[in-house]
């Protein structure tokens, strides 16, 4: 066993210090604080007692767990759609496009992320609103009699979420597909594999780490998204993060907000764990 000198140890410590500090100050300490806040109940002005009431509230009041269920289901759907749309794009970028085309396509995927999420979402609102561009074009083409409202519904939320998430799916997919030896595809083809069989047995199993990491990132981002569902969904958006925001900001109910925050963390982790079990993947494999 090689002996680690004191100098090396110090270097490692210095290099990791910002990360450790970041974790401690912005992740661990606030979470401990949130946990303690979530476990108390207001009994009178400025008087609090230890209680699980805030957590019970989530299960007792159908509104809250239904909102969570809806958020989770929409997020899963958005993740699946992002995967379905992102996979062919990634495959094209990684395996078919060459040279400049490849880099420009990749750039094209990243371009929307050079503007803020707010601007991107407003872009969609300009397109989809009743007095917006798509509605105008449809009327001009004679395909619609009057203004068409495409905003403020679940489909609009979905479009916005998929659009916002695309990059986070495409990047890991392109990098795993890039590492797939073309020879494997040719060999499978040569041995009698059809396109679909090759996709199922060679390409997808190889891309699995990328698929898993892409899906986890997209799912978590979507679940935690606040702007897109609120702005595009309008009166029916109903997103769980919105509930948390409301509890903190407009209800001054930090206790409830903290509890919801913790429930979001636990339940989303549970969903990812279940997803990994169902697809027989391990988290460790995704960082290979």
């Amino acid at each position: 066993m090689e002996r680690v000198s004191a100098g090396t140890k110090l270097t490692v410590l210095v290099l990791f210090a910002p990360f450790i500090l970041w974790m401690l100050l912005l992740v661990i300490l606030p979470h401990i604080d949130l946990l303690t806040i979530s476990l108390r109940e207001r009994v009178a002005p400025r008087v609090y007692e230890f209680s699980f009431k805030n957590y019970m509230e989530f299960f007792v009041e159908p509104l809250y767990w239904r909102t969570f269920a809806r958020t989770a289901i929409m997020s899963i759907l958005a993740t699946v759609l992002t995967l379905i749309i992102g996979f062919p794009i990634s495959y094209y970028i990684a395996k078919i496009a060459r040279g400049r085309l490849k880099s420009s396509l990749f750039l094209l995927c990243m371009l929307p992320f050079w503007v803020s999420e707010l601007v991107r979402t407003f872009g969609w609102m300009i397109l989809l609103r009743e007095s917006g561009i798509i509605s105008g074009v449809l009327q001009w083409l004679g395909l619609a009699d009057g203004p068409v409202e495409m905003l403020y519904n679940d489909a609009a939320i979905m479009v916005g979420l998929v659009y916002t998430s695309m990059l986070f799916m495409v990047v890991p997919l392109v990098s795993t597909l890039d590492s797939l030896d073309d020879g494997l595809i040719e060999a499978a083809y040569d041995l009698g594999g059809s396109t679909i069989a090759i996709l199922r047995e060679i390409v997808i199993p190889h891309a699995m780490p990328g698929i898993v990491s892409g899906c986890i990132v997209v799912f978590m981002l979507t679940l935690g998204n606040y702007l897109t569902p609120t702005l595009l969904g309008g009166k029916d958006s109903l997103w769980f993060t919105e509930q948390i925001y409301n509890q903190f900001i407009t209800r001054f109910n930090w206790e409830q907000g903290s509890a919801f925050g913790f429930l979001l963390l636990l339940l989303s982790s549970a969903i990812i764990w279940t997803g990994l079990r169902l697809t027989r993947q391990r988290l460790q494999d995704t960082i290979k």
Binding site: G183, L184, E186, A187, A188, D190, L191, E201, I202, H206
Partner: peptide
């Protein structure tokens, strides 16, 4: 016809 590839292309999965 079947082919043995230069880098063999065995399926690692």
């Amino acid at each position: 016809v079947n082919m043995v590839f230069q880098h063999l292309a065995l399926f690692p999965m």
